[in-house]
């Protein structure tokens, strides 16, 4: 009898572990990362969860690039040539720095989601700069969502350029972005 109960409890344990694994196995989608500005002006960082990706309508990843494959960096622009001098060096924590930079001067409660697109080399005045192309999705403190592409410095995480911003129609009452201005005489 005791053995029977032990077997049942063991089975429950196995089933429970299986369920936990299945429900959590895709919970961290490797290529998206979440950065959130807290009420105390701190930044929290974690791999994006399924629930978060659902909120920003992120596509479900169908293919992952194997982590052990060394990325080949593509030159940007016309000047593809041998570069002997670089003005920066890639840092492993560039994405974390980028997340912090994106949340600078932002309101508490803002979330940004970063997805890597490619690593590149930008030629500036004959020197190379390691850069990262990313997709950034933001949910503002008011719950509005925007996306754009960005180019970030691979060492400092500083945003160098942005483009491909979302085109919103906003058919209803258009949001009033009016600002109060003081005349100068």
């Amino acid at each position: 009898m005791k053995l029977k109960y032990l077997a049942i409890f063991a089975l429950i344990g196995v089933i429970g572990a299986l369920i936990y694994y299945i429900s959590h196995k895709d919970q961290h989608i490797a290529s998206w990362e979440t950065f959130e500005k807290t009420q105390k002006d701190k930044v929290k960082h974690h791999k994006s969860t399924s629930a978060e990706l659902k909120k920003i309508n992120a596509k479900k990843e169908t293919k992952r690039v194997p982590a052990n494959i060394k990325r080949e960096r593509v030159f940007l622009g016309k000047n593809k040539k041998q570069i002997n001098e670089f003005i920066n060096q890639p840092a492993s924590d560039w994405k974390e720095k980028l997340g912090h930079n994106l949340l600078d001067h932002r309101l508490p409660g803002t979330k940004v989601f970063i997805k890597e697109v490619s690593g590149n080399i930008k030629v500036e005045n004959g020197k190379g700069r390691y850069v990262e192309k990313v997709i950034v999705t933001t949910i503002t403190a008011e719950g509005k969502q925007y996306s754009f592409n960005a180019l970030a410095d691979s060492e400092t995480g500083k945003v160098l350029n942005t483009w491909n911003r979302t085109i919103h129609e906003e058919f209803g009452n258009k949001p009033n972005r009016g600002m109060s201005a003081n005349p100068v005489y």
Binding site: N101, L102, D104, H105, R106, L107, T110, V136, T138, T140, A141, K144, Y146, S147, F148, N149, A150, K158, V159, L160, N161, T162, W163, R165, T166, R177, M179, S180
Partner: peptide, 18 residues
């Protein structure tokens, strides 16, 4: 106004940084 403006401009990607 400025806080909201900078927040919105960064959110939409029109400006990269302050």
């Amino acid at each position: 106004d400025i806080s909201a403006a900078m927040d919105s401009l960064k959110a939409s990607g029109q400006i990269a940084s302050v």
